[in-house]
Design a protein around this nucleic acid. Sequence first.
RNA 1: GCGAAGGUGGCGGAAUUGGUAGACGCACCAGGUUUAGGUCCUGGCGCCUAACCGCGUGUGGGUUCGAGUCCCACCCUUCGCACCA
Length: 802
Amino acid sequence: SGKLHMGHVRNYTIGDVLTRHYRMRGRNVLQPMGWDAFGLPAENAAMANKVPPAKWTRDNIAYMKKQLQGLGFALDWTRELATCNPDYYKWNQWLFTRLFRKGLAYKKTGIVNWDPVDQTVLANEQVIEGRGWRTGAPVEKREIPMYFFRITKYAEELLGALDGLNGWPEQVKLMQKNWIGRSEGVRIGFEYSLENQKKILWVFTTRADTLMGTTFCAVAAEHPIAAWAAEKNPEVKKFVEECKRGTVVEAELAQIEKKGMPTGMFCTHPISGEEVTVWVGNYVLMTYGEGAVMGVPAHDERDFAFALKYGLAIPQVIDVAGFSANEWQDSYTDHGKCINSGKYDGLDFQQSVDAIAADLKSKSLGEKQVQWRLRDWGISRQRYWGCPIPIVHCASCGDVPVPDDQLPVKLPEDLVPDGTGNPLAKMPAFYETSCPSCGKPAKRETDTMDTFVDSSWYFARFACPGQDKAMVDERAKYWMAVDQYIGGIEHAILHLLYSRFFMRAMRDEGLLQVSEPFTNLLTQGMVLAETYYRDTPEGRREWVHPSEVVLERDAKGKILSAKKKDGAEVVFDGIGTMSKSRNNGVDPQQLIEKYGADTARLFIIFASPPTHTLEWSDEGVEGSFRFLKRLWSFCFKFKSISESKSENKNSRHEIHAVLKQANYDLQKHQFNTVASACMKILNAIERLPAGDPAAKEGLSILVRLLSPITPHVCHALWRELGFGEDVMTAPWPEPDPAALVQDEVEYVVQVNGKTRGTLKVPQAAVQKTMEEMAIQAANKYIDGKTIRRIVIVPGRLINIVV
RNA sequence: GCGAAGGUGGCGGAAUUGGUAGACGCACCAGGUUUAGGUCCUGGCGCCUAACCGCGUGUGGGUUCGAGUCCCACCCUUCGCACCA
């Protein structure tokens, strides 16, 4: 993207802390780095600056590599890769041809956003309020041929294997489970006749028990019945076209007003034989199930709203104590016993579904079915800066995959896209070719692959640097799976699911032995910043950088007004991810230049636990800087003080107790409290009397504990203090059990759960002694009342209940 | 709209299993060092209060000797929703 942003610094610092910590514990840790370099940002920058994406990208890589090296990450640069290099993307293409031959990659039509002015396909991000971002023209939907990966073939496995991913956060597994979306239901057929031919309208439902409450069916705008009705009725045609014009984004689709129109078609209820009207509805998704639904207003939320709007009947078929359908404010969607359902009356959910499915089956009008929410992965992009899809279209042979000896299909690197059409499709030198199969003139595919393909297997490639004969080799066996993956929570579904699919596809090609790419997953929280904009007199929206904004707040800290430094009013648009488009990114470079890499690393680790969302503010950075300065000068002062012989057990206790907690926190990946622990140890050492030998031991612990976070300072101090040459080869510090033992334990004394003081109790004290001591200590608060009970929590507290 | 997570002082956050709420740091206040500012050092710092008491972890209710932590209802914020990656 150009420069490192705070999210990068956070991500790689977390990874580096883990890496250095495990290396000190003796593990062989591979920490690689590479560049996910294809994609839209490079094309946009290229258009803005009139520079080919290739040059822009490689310049950025050079700059960002310097930044990473400056931050001191312990990376193995001999394994560096970039997805835009032919020696990498060749293997995307090679695998694609394998999957294509197996039918795991295939062609069908897909729906895209079409900008009619620029004559180009737009990404969802480039559609703003239904209009093209550059032209402002209303965006249309278009159906075009595309290639898909058959990820649905692995749906069952991808779902089932989640249970075994013990190193993944529950949150992510749950999101993936819901995304894959297995649901058990019944496929139901409603017969209708079209031009004297008997046809069946198929719907899928998880609520077959409510079948007898069906008052209508609704089909998607893309459904054949909608097309038929549009041809007959200009009103329907208008409506269908309106539906097709709308958004392809599901989040928006789910929030638009539910509208529908009767198609004039009627079908037959498969059980009652009654006539059911068929509507076309803008809320029915062609991509899920059969592209048609049965409408049961009383027991489905959307159907209820739909029936109210169009005055359809709302017959109740599930028993609800004390209610009847015509009094309802809302649908009743819980399970219950069937009523008003003829022979199914009195059956519960499972019984009625079983009975209805059996009856439908005997009529060949339905059966039980498992339905998935997961759809196949469309990978075709009508864009330039990506991996070319290795297919040749031949008039006689059809779609022919490019043979291995002609791979890679190289992307020309000197193009500057202009935002119209697909650049490769305007380049005869690229697309004119001959058929690999019959040799006749043929046309090369000009679409490129979704960049998620590039990022679905790169980690395996890191294991095999220099390998130009294969996608991966034997070395992947040693390193794969990735023991610890670190990524933003925004990747919880797509990237992680695609990678899981790719590992299985590669496994089934005999390339890998593992099925899961990532054994342990740490989902890093997003780095957020405030966003501000103002609409200019010319009607453009200008995003104002937070550093340019002056705020006025009320006593409670609420924003009263926001102004640009030049006085112009700006609008506060909430807190969101740092992004170029909203101009709220914070460049870490200034931080690094002012304070140094170690302070930047310490600060970002100390600011919050890795998994937390982090609202950016550099207010506390001085504290991290101050701590490193204090540590540094203390160490140099310390060198000149001679050690006394007096051993003091108590002075060691605090340091070792803090170390014990820090090691536990490291295990939990709670690195912010590890940084706190380092500060606590320095505070403890500073309190020691001059010459106490615990100080030297404490410093040895502190420098090692801190070294994964601030390696440069710790490396220097380790040598300066004479502990050794290289702190990274030192053993990881462990607490001394002897130092952890204490003669007295401090107890909290409570009366009725309210804290009334503390009490030092000898380690060996018996229960009765403790009770007596506590009663005496809290005598004032007991105030002569009867003691009903005394609760003692060993090592913690004594609660006197009166 | 649906799915997932979060909400603790002025701020970032801490509090293995239900057991002293606010560790550590920022900001702020007072004092010291300094020609001054900065740096540095010492002390204070949830709210109310002279002090004790009391109140306090988004809101309302519940379980418990004891709730930030468990249960129910609600509010707000963030992430994802298949072409940003």
